[in-house]
Write a protein that binds this DNA or RNA. Sequence first.
DNA 1: TCTTGACACTCAAGCGCTTTAGCAGTTCCC
DNA 2: GGGAACTGCTAAAGCGCTTGAGTGTCAAGA
Lengths: 369, 369
Amino acid sequence: MPTRRSPARRPTMKDIARRAGVSESAVSFALNDRPGVSEATRARVRRVAEQLGWRPSTAARALSGEGAATVGFVLARPAATLGVDSFFLQLVSGIQGVLAERHLGLLFQVVEDVAGECAVYRRWWAEHRVDGVLVVDPRADDPRPGLLDELSLPAVVIGGAPDERHPGLSTVWADDAGAMASVVGELTALGHRRIVHIAGLPGLAHTQRRIRTLRAEAERRGLAEVESVTTDYSGAEAAAVTRRVLRGPAPPTALVYDTDVMAVAGLAAAAELGFSVPAELSVVAWEDSALCRMVTPWLSALSRDSVEFGSTAARELLALLDGGPARTVRVPVPRLIERDSTGPARTDRPPRLGTANGGTDAGGSAADA
Amino acid sequence: MPTRRSPARRPTMKDIARRAGVSESAVSFALNDRPGVSEATRARVRRVAEQLGWRPSTAARALSGEGAATVGFVLARPAATLGVDSFFLQLVSGIQGVLAERHLGLLFQVVEDVAGECAVYRRWWAEHRVDGVLVVDPRADDPRPGLLDELSLPAVVIGGAPDERHPGLSTVWADDAGAMASVVGELTALGHRRIVHIAGLPGLAHTQRRIRTLRAEAERRGLAEVESVTTDYSGAEAAAVTRRVLRGPAPPTALVYDTDVMAVAGLAAAAELGFSVPAELSVVAWEDSALCRMVTPWLSALSRDSVEFGSTAARELLALLDGGPARTVRVPVPRLIERDSTGPARTDRPPRLGTANGGTDAGGSAADA
DNA sequence: TCTTGACACTCAAGCGCTTTAGCAGTTCCC
DNA sequence: GGGAACTGCTAAAGCGCTTGAGTGTCAAGA
């Protein structure tokens, strides 16, 4: 038992070299699997390194041109919005799984907005802190890809549609369009013709993809009373919108929420208004989580494997760091898990209140792409 | 408009020195507010640095003994458990706010268990990656404080009770005991005498503090039918426990859940069993979030400012990094926000089913500290 | 006048690693 | 038998920064 542990010094390659009786360069070659040392020496050096508990100093590595062994992840969310969200933690968890294999660190930062995010990228780049970054929540007219191109910072955009203008960036995306189409298909098969999509932030690329697809599908199928309403992703706003559309003259028979959190909030709002789910109203959550099984009725949800999504993105980034070409990979289309919140549309439902004004569109403001 | 942007080189101090016509050392002195240069030179150097968009290379800084300008944060949760949890994101957000002021990075890692967490600390230490760490979820008989002491890695334990054995670590904690006492006080004032506490992981220090306090309070007030049941924090288990205790011969009239997520799950379970809240059953969530206002009825919850909790912890770590002494700071006692899920105990409630066996304890397994 | 000493700055070493060049000692091949 | 071509290693420079030990200058004090 060590009596008084001296303020623990980290072993360096010099220590290994001394103990193994070779030069520092030999140690470097040995430990990095480079040719130039005999197998015997290599083994000896390895053993000594092991004994000493040596690990390369990332700082020194980075300084001699090897990169920082770190990737960055910025979450641009106003602090207040950071709420209940299973998606990001799962995504990060998936990312970590892949990064950990290579002993890459994940530098994480929360900022207020995209401008702040860009500032962080610039700083990280100048400070030599990260070798690449993972970008989430791509937007229409997004300044980030351009910036990352300019800095030639390897990056993977998570959730973006393929982008021709920035061939240097990889993209990992889920086929929102396909998923939306399948949801609409399901719902119309159940007889629903009045569908409201309670979407997320209007600026996000995937929000717009979903909205566009919904509109296209509605047209294709000749559904007139279908609309999307954008929100700030908050439960409060989701509930407010829900109330508004359900109080309209011809309330929808199906609601599609862009997140599980919004769906839960919307479900509660609908219940307050006396709508019974799924008898009078079907509800679909876009994003599955434990939350969906915590409410009554259990929510039917579009499920995708967010952890896997993260791993895929991380793998693409690694490929990029290894000098591979930028690629666009699509993860599996989210599957609709039918639980208890969806059912056949009840067409005989008598109009509720405020049927005064005629057959105009239901009350929401249609979001524009 | 730059025609063909050369693969952007980061400016170094050498560049500044050349442009400003001084030596590199002078630049270093100037930029670090050290004496040894005239104000005129300092200003000139600063200007040039600004123009060039220079930022110190963290790698180089770290290598010359300055530390890595990074703090670490490890979350030990089995990937599956990483669910809906507002607490951590808020905590991290608070941490970031403070770290960002000093341009410190946050290295984030998710691991499976405490052993993995220790491994990460060792690696980070050996790799020179972090200057300090923030430790969450302290446990009884926790190996981490000892390890961090041994590595002399500055650390702040978040949520731990003051620990005499590791005077090198700072601690930031909420007074769970006080909060539990106040909850029990509230509930007994409402007439509740049969209370079940659905707790989190039995190994966590704060779980044990809450359980101990509950027991002590119950004794003090002469409440016989009060118990704690530990869970894995999952909604599923919370629901299961809820069902079990509510089906018992003398079901509790009040349930206290250790997280908002569990409370929501429990609420749903209680509703399924036909218990009306708050008429027949009061429910309190330990942790407030949007979730609590998404269910019906709205959940009464113990609210604390998790963001502030994070900032406080980060500030303590900074103090430690600046060479300050380890301290123990207590954040404000969580306040009970009374919403719609708590009310007077209904004592006239007829026993439900399974009243066969006599007045034994309700069915749960009491957790032991 | 010469010494001090403060001031403003430069030099050079060093942090821990990678990497290029180079250097002995073998083996090979015509 | 004498280059050429390995093999297995060492020496040394360099990455970008900090820092302690100088160096040169000028003003004040003896």
